[in-house]
Nucleic acid binder design. Structure first.
Lengths: 338, 338
DNA sequence: CTGAAAGCGCTTACAG
DNA sequence: CTGAAAGCGCTTACAG
């Protein structure tokens, strides 16, 4: 493996220059005489030379790699990890590569996963996404951020941990307005208990703002069941129907809950959107697969990923970062098609 | 960043030994006098010393990191990447970490993504999963494997590229037997055109074996539409119904196609499982979310992930590897509940 | 069992 | 503009 490796010295030999010059040419740093530059580049090409990143990382004591941590809840398995995060993970990987960064991925729950990638010198810092229910993990990252480790998160900001989020209040209000527009007059809001997860509180607030502006009655129900979001939606919907509340519209603050609610509505023989219209939040792919397909606020994943990466780079280098909310887009589908 | 770093020299200083000894103790290599071992370990703990992996990687010219490449088809976006792969990716990450390996993840399609992680000295080799439609990418990895780079794949084996797969023929046969058991007498098989994707050919073969053993008529339909699997299933199902073929059971060789088929059946007003029973393959989470939930062959993702990782380690070190098929498990749900 | 030293493959002051 | 040299933080023969 190592025996066959071509190093900068080989290139230097072929080009008849010193190894330092090879390094300078290939990094395009200081000025190099044009003819020498050409000679070195040719030699490098001829030998198929690619600089060893481990060596240059060690020398520069930086890694140009991001440790991407996906938090998942022990209540869910990896299989039921919210697809919002798995998809976002893919986009982050692409966005980071586009900026010349490699991405080390690790899953982490309260019980599993270590946080040592940066301490071991394998990454420059962390991008953290995933379930915000996991207070223990978030606290660990907050502590790291206090210690000066670059940490950028999705969803939850705190003192030193800079995070971005969707324009939750406005987007939720837009979705609820849409329900009103298609004729809903008794709209309930289903949501996980916000707890540390700010986004849910904000989406509920968006719902409330519309209800109050329109003088309509608020019906907000939270789920505390320690299961995955889908089951939370299923159970919560049944509970609301059991209460005997009259309903013609549902706003779920997360798509998985909306999908769970849809199942419950079917189990009760209620037609969607005929008797009850339904709208979710996130824009996960599965909302297109259901029957009927579900209207939702689609988050702009590529934009979120790019922002996380550019903010990561900003935090690492002490530059300014942009923490403004990333706008989502209401996508109207069958579940509100009247 | 670097200024504050504690190195093996600091530990050596505190313990009153040489840096070599620190290295020996912390790697547990050769024998070290017990009292010295203790002194070093204490000093290391006191200073919070963690060895710099970049430096040791450089020295040992190995990285203990795996480049995990997820191939996706340009026809699909990242958002519609088969959840089978995103979930598998998570399990691989966990399995690799458990073996002391870090995982560099990158997405790759025909148009995007580079294959240079190993050449740049950042990883020891590749684990490749994802869409087998992408012949161009697979060929690149085959070429790398020929050159002696460790490459382990899911689904497609070839000369030097060792891959593992599910027990596709048997598992498919089991699923089709189940359809027969619940009373289906006119079962169609829907599948993506196998092409390079051996698994689909094998699953169709499993279907055929049951049909011939039972003396039942084969109805196999392939999709060539250049879209994601869901839409392939939707269109193919409509096409089969347009043909006027009498049906009371569907075996789809992939869950996403099954979900698409389910939509089509609903659009045609056919009840599932009442008039048509439906069974998929893969066991993606979404099969629990549909209405009705879908019977499927659930792949054992944690086992697959562990095998990919242990085979990767085997290939890297020249040890024997286990390429036997990984068994799946038929999970019976509402779509075949009669 | 332990230390001094070489070396992994780079980058980057420092002279010239 | 270019080269010789130091050094990033480790591992591992090599002596002792």
């Amino acid at each position: 493996m190592n025996s066959g490796r071509v190093t900068a010295y080989d290139v230097a030999g072929l080009a008849g220059v010193s190894q330092s010059t090879v390094s300078r040419v290939l990094n395009g740093k200081t000025s190099v005489r044009p003819d020498i530059r050409v000679r070195v580049e040719e030699a490098a090409r001829k030998l198929g030379y690619i600089a060893n990143a481990t060596a240059s990382n060690l020398r520069r004591s930086t890694t140009r790699t991001i440790a991407l941590v996906v938090l998942y809840d022990d209540h869910e398995g990896i299989g039921s990890l919210n697809p919002f995060y798995t998809t976002l993970q893919g986009h982050i990987s692409v966005a980071a590569n586009a900026e010349g960064y490699a991405v080390l991925t690790s899953l982490m729950s309260e019980k599993m996963g270590d946080v040592g990638l940066v301490m071991r010198g394998l990454a420059d810092g962390y991008i953290v996404i995933g379930s915000g229910r996991d207070k223990v993990c978030w606290d660990r990252f907050r502590a790291l951020a206090e210690d000066g480790v670059p940490v950028v998160g999705w969803g939850i900001a705190s003192q030193r941990l800079s995070a971005i989020s969707a324009a939750n209040v406005d987007a939720a209000a837009g979705a609820v307005e849409h329900l009103v527009d298609i004729g809903c007059r008794a709209i309930a809001c289903l949501s996980p208990r916000p707890g540390d997860q700010r986004q849910f509180a904000d989406r509920v607030e968006g719902y409330r703002s519309v209800m109050s502006r329109r003088g309509m009655k608020e019906t907000v129900r939270y789920s505390d069941v320690p299961t995955d979001r889908l089951e939370q939606g299923l159970k919560l919907m049944h509970q609301v129907l059991d209460e005997g509340t009259q309903l013609d519209g549902i706003f779920a603050t997360c798509d998985l809950m909306a999908i769970g609610a849809l199942r419950a509505l079917h189990e009760r023989g209620l037609s969607v959107p005929g008797q009850v219209a339904l709208c979710g939040f996130d824009g996960i792919y599965a909302t297109r697969l259901t029957n009927p397909s579900i209207t939702t606020v689609e988050q702009d994943m590529p934009a979120i990923a790019r922002r996380l990466v550019s903010n990561f780079i900003g935090v690492s280098s002490g530059d300014a970062i942009d923490t403004s909310p990333v706008p989502g887009k209401l996508v109207i589908r069958e579940s509100t098609g009247r």
